[in-house]
Protein backbone atom coordinates (compact mmCIF):
# COMPACT_ATOMS: atom_id res chain seq x y z
CA UNK A 1 0.00 0.00 0.00
CA UNK A 2 1.38 3.37 -0.89
CA UNK A 3 1.03 6.34 1.43
CA UNK A 4 0.83 9.90 0.30
CA UNK A 5 -0.15 13.25 1.71
CA UNK A 6 -1.22 15.41 -1.15
CA UNK A 7 -1.80 19.10 -1.31
CA UNK A 8 -3.05 20.22 -4.66
CA UNK A 9 -3.42 23.91 -3.94
CA UNK A 10 -2.51 25.07 -7.40
CA UNK A 11 -4.13 28.46 -6.95
CA UNK A 12 -1.98 30.21 -4.32
CA UNK A 13 -4.21 33.28 -4.17
CA UNK A 14 -7.08 31.27 -2.81
CA UNK A 15 -4.81 29.22 -0.58
CA UNK A 16 -3.51 32.37 1.12
CA UNK A 17 -7.01 33.59 1.83
CA UNK A 18 -8.28 30.25 3.05
CA UNK A 19 -8.91 29.26 6.62
CA UNK A 20 -6.76 26.43 7.97
CA UNK A 21 -8.70 23.31 7.16
CA UNK A 22 -7.49 19.79 7.65
CA UNK A 23 -7.07 16.96 5.27
CA UNK A 24 -9.30 13.89 5.22
CA UNK A 25 -8.01 10.31 5.24
CA UNK A 26 -9.20 8.48 2.14
CA UNK A 27 -8.64 4.88 1.03
CA UNK A 28 -8.92 4.20 -2.67
CA UNK A 29 -8.03 1.26 -4.86
CA UNK A 30 -6.65 2.65 -8.09
CA UNK A 31 -6.02 0.20 -10.92
CA UNK A 32 -5.85 -2.60 -8.37
CA UNK A 33 -3.42 -0.89 -6.00
CA UNK A 34 -4.64 0.12 -2.54
CA UNK A 35 -3.82 3.73 -1.68
CA UNK A 36 -4.06 5.45 1.72
CA UNK A 37 -4.21 9.19 1.11
CA UNK A 38 -4.74 12.36 3.11
CA UNK A 39 -6.64 14.72 0.87
CA UNK A 40 -7.91 18.27 1.01
CA UNK A 41 -11.69 18.12 0.51
CA UNK A 42 -11.70 20.27 -2.63
CA UNK A 43 -9.38 18.02 -4.65
CA UNK A 44 -11.19 16.40 -7.57
CA UNK A 45 -10.54 12.81 -8.54
CA UNK A 46 -9.16 14.13 -11.83
CA UNK A 47 -6.57 16.37 -10.14
CA UNK A 48 -5.66 13.58 -7.71
CA UNK A 49 -5.04 11.15 -10.57
CA UNK A 50 -3.05 13.54 -12.73
CA UNK A 51 -1.23 15.82 -10.29
CA UNK A 52 -1.08 13.65 -7.18
CA UNK A 53 -0.56 10.17 -8.55
CA UNK A 54 0.90 11.08 -11.96
CA UNK A 55 -1.62 8.91 -13.80
CA UNK A 56 -1.79 11.32 -16.71
CA UNK A 57 -3.64 8.99 -19.07
CA UNK A 58 -6.87 10.53 -17.80
CA UNK A 59 -7.17 13.89 -19.55
CA UNK A 60 -8.44 17.26 -18.41
CA UNK A 61 -10.45 18.81 -21.22
CA UNK A 62 -13.15 21.18 -20.00
CA UNK A 63 -13.01 20.38 -16.26
CA UNK A 64 -16.79 20.92 -16.17
CA UNK A 65 -18.30 17.56 -17.13
CA UNK A 66 -18.98 18.67 -20.67
CA UNK A 67 -16.33 16.90 -22.76
CA UNK A 68 -15.90 13.44 -21.21
CA UNK A 69 -12.12 13.28 -21.64
CA UNK A 70 -11.73 12.58 -17.89
CA UNK A 71 -14.09 9.58 -17.93
CA UNK A 72 -12.97 6.80 -15.58
CA UNK A 73 -14.68 3.79 -14.03
CA UNK A 74 -15.70 4.18 -10.39
CA UNK A 75 -16.68 0.80 -8.93
CA UNK A 76 -17.07 -0.29 -12.55
CA UNK A 77 -19.36 2.59 -13.59
CA UNK A 78 -18.26 5.37 -15.95
CA UNK A 79 -18.27 8.88 -14.51
CA UNK A 80 -16.58 12.25 -15.06
CA UNK A 81 -13.53 12.40 -12.74
CA UNK A 82 -13.58 16.21 -12.88
CA UNK A 83 -16.93 16.38 -11.06
CA UNK A 84 -16.08 14.00 -8.21
CA UNK A 85 -14.39 15.25 -5.07
CA UNK A 86 -11.86 12.55 -4.27
CA UNK A 87 -12.76 12.55 -0.56
CA UNK A 88 -16.27 11.38 -1.44
CA UNK A 89 -14.91 8.17 -2.96
CA UNK A 90 -13.48 6.60 0.21
CA UNK A 91 -13.50 2.82 -0.26
CA UNK A 92 -14.09 2.95 -4.03
CA UNK A 93 -12.24 1.17 -6.81
CA UNK A 94 -11.07 3.43 -9.61
CA UNK A 95 -10.04 2.14 -13.02
CA UNK A 96 -8.28 4.51 -15.43
CA UNK A 97 -7.00 3.89 -18.93
CA UNK A 98 -3.69 2.74 -17.37
CA UNK A 99 -5.62 0.00 -15.57
CA UNK A 100 -7.58 -1.16 -18.61
CA UNK A 101 -4.61 -2.05 -20.80
CA UNK A 102 -0.89 -1.56 -21.20
CA UNK A 103 1.54 -1.61 -24.14
CA UNK A 104 1.81 -5.24 -25.18
CA UNK A 105 -1.38 -6.10 -23.30
CA UNK A 106 -3.99 -3.96 -24.97
CA UNK A 107 -7.60 -3.97 -23.89
CA UNK A 108 -9.84 -5.17 -26.75
CA UNK A 109 -11.22 -1.64 -27.12
CA UNK A 110 -7.69 -0.21 -27.42
CA UNK A 111 -6.90 -2.73 -30.14
CA UNK A 112 -10.17 -1.96 -31.91
CA UNK A 113 -9.57 1.80 -31.74
CA UNK A 114 -6.22 1.26 -33.49
CA UNK A 115 -7.73 -1.14 -36.02
CA UNK A 116 -10.55 1.27 -36.91
CA UNK A 117 -8.49 4.48 -36.85
CA UNK A 118 -10.81 5.76 -34.13
CA UNK A 119 -8.69 8.76 -33.17
CA UNK A 120 -6.55 11.46 -34.66
CA UNK A 121 -4.99 13.68 -31.98
CA UNK A 122 -5.82 11.11 -29.29
CA UNK A 123 -6.65 13.55 -26.51
CA UNK A 124 -10.20 12.29 -26.03
CA UNK A 125 -9.23 8.64 -26.53
CA UNK A 126 -8.64 7.51 -22.91
CA UNK A 127 -12.03 8.95 -21.97
CA UNK A 128 -13.66 7.44 -25.05
CA UNK A 129 -12.28 3.99 -24.21
CA UNK A 130 -13.18 4.13 -20.51
CA UNK A 131 -16.64 5.36 -21.52
CA UNK A 132 -17.02 2.59 -24.10
CA UNK A 133 -16.00 0.01 -21.51
CA UNK A 134 -18.65 1.44 -19.18
CA UNK A 135 -21.21 1.38 -22.00
CA UNK A 136 -20.54 -2.29 -22.73
CA UNK A 137 -20.80 -3.22 -19.04
CA UNK A 138 -24.10 -1.30 -18.77
CA UNK A 139 -25.57 -3.33 -21.61
CA UNK A 140 -28.18 -0.77 -22.72
CA UNK A 141 -26.76 -0.07 -26.20
CA UNK A 142 -27.13 -2.66 -28.93
CA UNK A 143 -27.18 -0.72 -32.20
CA UNK A 144 -24.96 1.93 -33.80
CA UNK A 145 -27.65 4.54 -33.09
CA UNK A 146 -27.79 3.54 -29.43
CA UNK A 147 -24.00 3.61 -29.16
CA UNK A 148 -23.91 7.13 -30.62
CA UNK A 149 -26.56 8.31 -28.15
CA UNK A 150 -24.92 6.59 -25.17
CA UNK A 151 -21.48 7.96 -26.10
CA UNK A 152 -22.71 11.57 -26.44
CA UNK A 153 -20.85 12.51 -23.27
CA UNK A 154 -17.51 12.07 -25.03
CA UNK A 155 -16.61 14.80 -27.49
CA UNK A 156 -14.01 14.25 -30.22
CA UNK A 157 -13.01 17.47 -31.90
CA UNK A 158 -11.12 15.57 -34.60
CA UNK A 159 -14.50 14.10 -35.49
CA UNK A 160 -13.64 10.40 -35.33
CA UNK A 161 -17.14 9.52 -34.20
CA UNK A 162 -17.94 7.15 -37.06
CA UNK A 163 -14.81 5.08 -36.46
CA UNK A 164 -15.28 5.17 -32.68
CA UNK A 165 -18.73 3.64 -33.16
CA UNK A 166 -17.21 1.03 -35.51
CA UNK A 167 -14.60 0.08 -32.91
CA UNK A 168 -17.16 -0.25 -30.13
CA UNK A 169 -19.52 -2.26 -32.36
CA UNK A 170 -16.71 -4.65 -33.18
CA UNK A 171 -15.82 -5.25 -29.54
CA UNK A 172 -19.48 -5.66 -28.58
CA UNK A 173 -19.78 -8.30 -31.29
CA UNK A 174 -16.70 -10.27 -30.29
CA UNK A 175 -17.56 -13.76 -29.16
CA UNK A 176 -17.19 -14.31 -25.46
CA UNK A 177 -17.03 -10.61 -24.66
CA UNK A 178 -19.35 -9.50 -21.89
Amino acid sequence: MSQAALSLSNDPGLALASRPIGTVPVRLTINGEAQALDLEPWVTLLDLLREGLHLTGTKKGCDHGQCGSCTVLIDGTRMNACLKLAVTLDGCEITTIEGLGQPGNLHPLQAAFIEHDAFQCGYCTPGQICSAEGLIREGHAHTREEIREQMSGNLCRCGAYTNIADAILEVMGQEGWE
Binding site: G68, N80, E138
Partner: peptide, 9 residues
Amino acid sequence: GATAQLRNA
Protein backbone atom coordinates in the same frame (compact mmCIF):
# COMPACT_ATOMS: atom_id res chain seq x y z
CA GLY B 1 -31.16 14.44 -20.04
CA ALA B 2 -27.39 14.84 -19.75
CA THR B 3 -25.06 11.93 -20.65
CA ALA B 4 -24.53 8.39 -19.44
CA GLN B 5 -21.59 9.48 -17.26
CA LEU B 6 -23.60 12.28 -15.64
CA ARG B 7 -26.70 10.13 -15.14
CA ASN B 8 -24.51 7.49 -13.47
CA ALA B 9 -23.39 10.03 -10.87
